[in-house]
């Protein structure tokens, strides 16, 4: 077995995390087609290495802030598949009892402080969480994931400046999947790298990483997390990747130039990682066993979620106030 800076169990964890995300999101897509998941959803197919690479490097009590494209980050932190699929399906077993749905996954017990569907909204929030960690001396690090489109909204710049001025233990991770929804990010951004090319404005290092290489992401994650935990301040990392599905469920992504999807599919993060593991001497049978175990877990979660009821009307006004209800208002 070849050895380098990443040990065997970490590599297996990186592989497993990516497979979990891939297989669960494929199932989510099927459930949409069966109308068991309604509304919309935003998949991370092709972007799994970013979520896996960071989550594996995190401490259990670190914070994750992510976007409406957040199934991947929620799963990567260890939130249960049943809770994720149940929430997507609007069932009682869902992470938020069915009140949020796909775009708002939250699991505080796993450090997932929320998926935010208003672009840019969670960047200042992640900075605030980092301030709290710093003040409490807890050593926690706040990880904030967002898309390339976010780099052009005001909140991005406000949060980056906060973090840099106050040297906060926060890491801003731009998943550059090339598209701001349906529009190529390059056509609406003044610089080539919407995040990394802005780093200098906040006195931060310009960091671009191959977001389809889980090892490369993991190494950058370790480095930036160690730095933040050690009092070295924030980082801004741009991970180059590609979403191989549409922006959302209803999007066939006809706006892609010919050949682009095929080129990126050749660099599929999971295929790349699998090939690397085999090259490093991992057994094919071991990986296959892991694939099967994950598939079984996805199947079980699917059945569990299907069997779970939809939430009753009585919960509609619960959790508006600290007493758990909304007694005087409705």
């Amino acid at each position: 077995m070849a050895s380098d800076d990443i040990d065997r169990s970490t590599r297996l964890a990186l592989y497993r995390s990516q497979i979990e995300i891939r297989l669960l999101e494929k199932r989510a897509y099927e459930l949409f087609l069966q109308n068991l998941i309604k509304g919309t959803s935003h998949l991370s197919l092709g972007q799994e290495a970013v979520a896996a690479g960071f989550a594996v490097a995190m401490r259990p009590d670190d914070y994750t802030y992510c976007t409406y494209r957040g199934h991947s980050h929620t799963l990567a932190r260890g939130a249960p598949m049943l809770g994720v699929l149940g929430e997507l399906m609007g069932r009682r077993c869902g992470l938020m009892g069915g009140k949020g749905g796909s775009m708002h996954l939250t699991s505080v017990a796993h450090g997932v402080m929320g998926s935010y569907a208003i672009v840019g909204a969670h960047l200042p929030v992640a900075a605030g969480a980092a301030w709290s960690a710093q003040l409490r001396g807890s050593g926690q690090v706040s990880l904030c994931f967002f898309g390339d489109g976010t780099c052009n909204i005001g909140a991005f710049h406000e949060a980056l400046n906060f973090a840099a001025v106050w040297k906060l233990p926060v890491i801003f991770v731009c998943e550059n999947n090339q598209y701001m929804e349906y529009t190529p990010i390059r056509s609406v951004t003044a610089v080539e790298h919407p995040a990394a090319d802005r780093a200098a404005a906040y006195g931060l290092e310009r960091i671009v990483v191959d977001g389809n290489d889980a090892d490369a992401v993991y190494r950058k994650a370790r480095e930036s997390i160690d730095k933040a935990r050690g009092g070295g301040g924030p980082s801004l990392i741009e991970a180059m990747t590609y979403r191989t599905s549409g922006h959302s469920r209803a999007d066939p992504a006809k706006y892609r130039p010919p050949g682009e999807l095929e080129e990126w599919t050749k660099r599929d993060p999971i295929a790349l990682y699998r090939a690397r593991l085999l090259e490093l001497g991992f057994e094919e049978s071991e990986l296959r066993a892991m694939d099967s175990a994950v598939q079984r877990a996805v199947d079980e979660a699917t059945e569990g979620a299907k069997a779970s009821p939809t939430p009753p009307l009585e919960v509609i006004d619960k959790d508006v106030w600290a007493d758990g209800g909304s007694s005087w208002r409705n």
């Binding site: 069932r91 939430p311 009307l313 509609i316 006004d317 508006v320 909304s326 208002r329 409705n330």
Partner: peptide, 14 residues
């Protein structure tokens, strides 16, 4: 509508 945020699964009750 109710004096609550907009609920996903309970949309038709809201």
């Amino acid at each position: 509508g109710w004096d609550t945020p907009f609920p996903y699964a309970l949309e038709n009750d809201y």
